[in-house]
Computed example of a mutant assay.
Amino acid sequence: MLARDDQNPPRRTPLYALHISLGGKMVPFAGYEMPVQYPAGVLKEHLHTRASAGLFDVSHMGQIALRPKSGRIEDAAKALERLVPQDIVAIPQGRQRYAQFTNSDGGILDDLMVANFGDHLFLVVNAACKAEDEAHLRAHLSDDCIIDSLGDRALIALQGPKAEAVLAKLCPETPSLKFMDAGPRKVDGLDCFVSRSGYTGEDGFEISVPAADAERLAKTLLADSDVLPIGLGARDSLRLEAGLCLYGHDIDTATTPVEAALEWSVQKSRRTGGARAGGFPGADKILGHFDRGAARRRVGLKAEGRAPVREGAALFADTTASEPIGKVTSGGFGPSLNAPVAMGYVPAALSALGTIVYAEVRGQRLPLAIAAMPFVKNTYKR
């Protein structure tokens, strides 16, 4: 049961009643009541998503439209580039890109998805940060853009190898979409925004749907025998196996994209030479990390034994060292691997694959090997 807080009661997504009817175990998360699991349990939900298709309620995420006052989409893109280190101008219509809001010290305020819908940019931001993100956009981009918070829309994710076949029954264009395609689509006759993306490492889709129609669409998808509802527990274990960052844990305001091993997300046009290099908050520090390297790095960690190493565990260079060299930021059991996996930060000098570090767990030093990520091969349709 949730603790009652009459001053700050948790919010509910448009699918709350459906979660209750499906036997969802509700917990507080990012200011919302969200299902952590259903009667099948986290393990079965995780494995079902890897083998078939899982439906996730991610309506707690923020959805924002940036509409250029000039009517030219490139003006909205150039404006957004003042806040992120990514090349937004180069995103073609019908595509999306992963990005980060950075601060003046190069840290990450939030990570987000940015799609080009032709006449405006569509942003999806993290639930815990969405109020601050919207305020950030209004403070810096209001001269160039109209900023619309799309609070009248829900967001659901259909993930897994059978997701395409399931969604194609309701949206015939589905098979033609490639990874990171995004745009308006009709789904079961509803005006939706569909992207071929997700947070599990599996092929799949995120579907923005009018809030009033969300329950009907979710029920239609769940009526397919290949689809199960999936809670936050399996969502977390799936993204950990996929090596994907969780904001506030693996990345935060004190972590640069280079430290977080997210260099791939910063295009060459924003970091070397030309007229559009730099110009975003913290550029000097972030570009310095590109040039000279960062002192620490996010790495994958695999335990030799069966005991999971959890978030917050201190990491040491050997079994006798008194000072930690880093810490675990995400950790747990990987059901697809039948073994524990983790992520954390270590000195760059100790980040080579195969290097052994030690996590302190209940007074013992457990060996962990620096491992390649993702832990489970992704199945995106490219």
Rank of each mutant, 00 (worst) to 15 (best):
A3F: 01
D5E: 11
D5Q: 11
D6W: 04
P9S: 14
P9D: 13
R11G: 12
R12E: 12
R12C: 13
P14I: 03
Y16S: 12
L18N: 10
H19M: 04
H19T: 06
I20W: 04
S21Q: 14
S21P: 01
G23V: 12
G24D: 05
V27M: 15
P28C: 05
P28Y: 06
P28I: 07
F29E: 12
G31H: 05
G31E: 03
Y32K: 08
Y32I: 03
P35Q: 04
V36I: 13
V36N: 10
Y38W: 03
A40W: 03
A40V: 07
G41N: 06
V42F: 02
L43P: 04
H46I: 10
H46M: 07
H46F: 06
L47N: 11
H48D: 07
R50H: 09
S52T: 03
L55H: 04
L55D: 10
D57Y: 00
M61A: 09
G62W: 01
G62E: 07
A65N: 10
P68T: 07
K69L: 01
G71R: 05
I73W: 02
I73Q: 08
D75S: 12
A79T: 06
E81W: 06
L83S: 05
Q86N: 15
D87H: 13
I88A: 11
I88N: 12
I91P: 10
I91K: 13
Q93N: 11
Q93P: 13
R95I: 02
A99G: 12
F101P: 09
T102Y: 03
G106C: 10
G107N: 11
L109A: 05
L109V: 09
D111S: 05
M113L: 14
V114L: 02
A115V: 03
H120T: 09
L121C: 09
L121R: 07
F122N: 13
F122S: 14
L123F: 02
L123A: 06
V125W: 07
N126V: 07
A128L: 10
A128I: 12
D133G: 06
L137K: 00
R138M: 00
R138N: 01
A139T: 08
A139P: 02
H140N: 10
H140V: 00
H140A: 02
S142F: 00
I146E: 00
I147R: 00
I147A: 00
D148I: 03
S149D: 03
S149H: 12
L150R: 14
